[in-house]
Design a protein around this nucleic acid. Structure first.
Lengths: 291, 291
DNA sequence: ATCAGTTACGTAACTCGTAACGATT
DNA sequence: AATCGTTACGAGTTACGTAACTGAT
């Protein structure tokens, strides 16, 4: 089970082909075949069917474990090497809705202090951000999501351990100004099973809301909040968003959600070794326990 | 960074000696020396000082990562191999305070159903149980602890992901019947900074309570709840325990805790692959979300 | 002088690539 | 016949053990 073998196994699993995996990893097809064979021999099980190439049950399990293991291995390496030579840089990762004025101000302040600090901001979806934080690709990450009040975000595997809440606020349903629902003082998501929703997987996937059975009328495959808010204002569907964000968009009204109790929450993730200035920024952001 | 090297690195780190590590792993001292050298070359850092052998900063970091990585690797292997040949067994792990009548009844029922099921119960401290669950050494684990209501237990690294709450109840301070505090209807832990506590690391370490500055008068290094309750009844010190447990002990009064809000919680951890009958038992235990 | 880790070197094992082979469409 | 995975074999590399070496107490 050495990482080499796991890596090629993952490549085969993902490409569905020995030759494609070989190409991706700059091996010969033969080498890949041999590596898979030794892995299977080691574990005493078939991991893949051939012709067509597909994962067996054991293979599926290994695939899940292997991807995580490889990320963590990478993370360990990054942590150790960076313990030695802390880079003079600040790379910040954000999920789209994790951007706040407060954060922006804090970053400005940091950059003002350490002049010419090489800094870099990356906005991406949650999974990407969380793994990047785990491997040390980014120094500091802010990840957002909706949960029950006081509940932490349920973050994906390789990172969620050391998350600290830094901000939390009400979640609302964003509806166009004229819409009949806009006059309501409170909504229950359960009552809205008939409504159509905008599913924006990269921004605020409703599949992650603690509610079932919402129906997607439109899928938005981008990460731009302005566009998303525009779509909602144009009546393409409902969407759950942080209250402050809705408040500052013309054409949209935020209707408080009565049930389930829901807040928008931002959590901070730090690379295992995050030296100054990441530590400093984390401090500025307040990293209040927020329970 | 292949696991082989990590394993010997961990051995050296733990024994504090190349030769001892070599002996433990059935290598020659020379082999160990070479392995550490390649690891250091790979990471580009010294991991250990020689004469005396001790971890450098980078080494300490790697040590933390490496132990976890090795456990997870073991866990992955166990999971995959057991996916193939689910063992006809049920090994149950418990922390001492996770034992309940309900659980006992559920186990009895399972064993009644599948006659002659090879089963096995292991009571140990939290760390041991959590890693054992992660590696598949045990099929099902029940881990207890004290937290704020609705908060999940903060479990140690390699396992805490898929924990589900199965039971929760009030936590009380156990005081001997005659004790002046026994007449109080409610206590605040903060007010008890002057009192002496029993520290029972294997059962209910107060270092894990969400309170600071408690003072240990007596340390109990065992895992037997009866002895512990006896010590408390004899006035050796105060201890936080689940209310039902205190209620059924003669000589002890449980005084409700007003602040911080505290509950005793039991969570269920499953081995990644837990086939019947572990799944069945988990079902019987109700694995209610408990939020 | 002894103890503990390093280095040199030879051998054994492994890993990969080439090339021939086999099976599936 | 073409495609894709397997197998055989040889070459290059790696990894370990023996043994000599080095430095510290």
């Amino acid at each position: 089970m050495d990482p080499h073998l796991l890596r090629t196994f993952v490549a085969v699993a993902e490409t569905g082909s020995f030759s494609a995996a070989a190409q991706r990893l700059s091996y010969t097809q033969s080498a890949v075949s041999q590596q898979i064979a030794t892995l299977e021999a080691d574990l005493g099980t078939a991991l893949l069917t051939r012709r067509p190439v597909a994962l067996t049950t054991a293979g599926e399990r290994l695939h899940r474990h292997a991807t995580l293991l490889l990320v963590r291995l990478e993370a360990a390496r990054a942590d150790v090497t960076r313990a030695v030579a802390p880079p003079g840089r600040l790379i910040l990762g954000l999920t789209p809705l994790a951007w706040t004025e407060q954060m922006s101000a804090a970053l400005a302040r940091i950059r003002g202090e350490s002049a010419r600090l090489h800094s870099h901001v990356l906005v991406a979806d949650r999974d990407r951000i969380v793994t990047a934080a785990a491997t040390g690709e980014i120094d500091l990450a802010l990840v957002d999501g909706f949960t029950a009040p006081n509940d932490p975000l349920r973050l994906p595997e390789p990172g969620g351990q050391g998350a600290v809440g830094v901000a939390g606020g009400p979640a609302v349903v964003a509806v166009p100004d004229g819409h009949p629902l806009a006059r309501r003082s409170e909504l229950s998501l359960g009552d809205l099973a008939d409504a159509y929703w905008i599913d924006a997987p990269a921004v605020a996937p409703f599949s992650r809301l603690p509610v079932d059975g919402l129906r997607a009328g439109l899928r938005y495959d981008g990460a731009d909040v302005t566009v998303l808010a525009g779509l909602a204002a144009a009546g393409h569907g409902l969407i759950v968003l942080p209250a402050p964000l809705v408040a500052q968009r013309p054409g949209l009204t935020g209707v408080p959600i009565g049930s389930p109790r829901l807040v928008h929450r931002i959590e901070l993730l730090r690379a295992p070794t995050s030296e100054e200035p990441a530590t400093r920024l984390a401090g500025l952001l307040g990293a209040e326990p927020l329970q």
